[in-house]
Write a protein that binds this DNA or RNA. Structure first.
Lengths: 156, 156
DNA sequence: GCATCGTTTTAGAATGAGTCTAAAACATAA
DNA sequence: TTATGTTTTAGACTCATTCTAAAACGATGC
């Protein structure tokens, strides 16, 4: 297991990030780390998500795996994605109507969806928002979601 | 049509907000303002959303209206909510799995969902986030979504 | 008042993501 | 080898949403 670092500079201050995208870990190590029993099927799902950072839906994961010759059922893909999400090994994203998308990158980051082509990109945060959260509320986490045009679609 | 102002102070700077929640407007004025032809059914849907800031689903709007004696079909509620969203008169929210919720408040604000009771609250922004948006991307708007515990649920 | 034309509403069928069920497969321990 | 618990599976089911095609409605012109 290799760990890569990424760094950038804002207003003269250097930030060093342990970028999860760059942590090379096997799917088995990943399941162990999250205390999830590994099975052939779970390894396949995790590997798919490690290799495809396209924020796929359950059905896209299923299609991708079966197209590549894997023998796994639709129900197992749904089950596995739910187990992984419940154990905190995946992030479930509600972006479009009526479908859940999955992201294996767990560090705080935003998502950008191109209005035209529908592709979803990861965007790093440089400064968190702040809120007038009324007395008595306790926030656990904040999601950031942007919509706009990606470089391919902005001109056409 | 009366317009109310709201103001608050951060770091010694006064901000004055024309708070949409406080703009008293009839449903007919609201549809006219968004260039949407009014009908009895559309007025009913807009009035429901003006009176219920609970971010209801289409089915909740339908139930609420029919329970109150309105004669409107399920399909019309779905159609109307789509028309209003397409014309920019409503905001569609993807918060939970598989349901779209609707918000008539259009000014930039965040949403807070209680993990325990599921209620959704509006939260005002005091500072926007910033992002490392790669070269060539153009963002149109940003959504903020928080999860945590509301005052009623935090103790129990 | 009546015919025409475009828009809106409607009931019910269809779609499709996701869940449920109950049985089979598999793994682990005794 | 048996017993026990977990995981996988096919197919049935659910339920939000969309689709379809007909009916209702509203505005306009005559």
């Amino acid at each position: 297991m290799q760990i890569f670092l990424e760094y950038f500079c804002i207003y003269g201050i250097f930030f060093v990030i342990l970028h999860p995208k760059l942590i090379k870990m096997t799917s088995k190590e990943y399941l162990n780390q999250h205390h999830i029993q590994w099975t052939q099927e779970r390894l396949q799902v995790v590997e798919y998500l490690m290799e495809h950072h396209t924020h796929p839906t359950a059905i896209e994961v299923y299609q991708g795996l079966t197209d590549a010759g894997a023998d796994i059922s639709r129900a197992t893909v749904f089950n596995t994605l739910n187990v992984l999400t419940d154990k905190g090994a995946l992030r479930a994203l509600q972006i479009e109507d009526g479908v859940t998308r999955y992201d294996i990158l767990l560090h705080p980051h935003a998502h950008f969806r191109c209005i035209k082509c529908g592709a979803i990109y990861d965007v790093e945060l440089t400064r968190k928002a702040s809120f007038r959260l009324p007395e008595g509320f306790q926030s656990c986490h904040t999601d950031y979601f942007m919509e706009g045009y990606c470089p391919t679609c902005i001109d056409s």
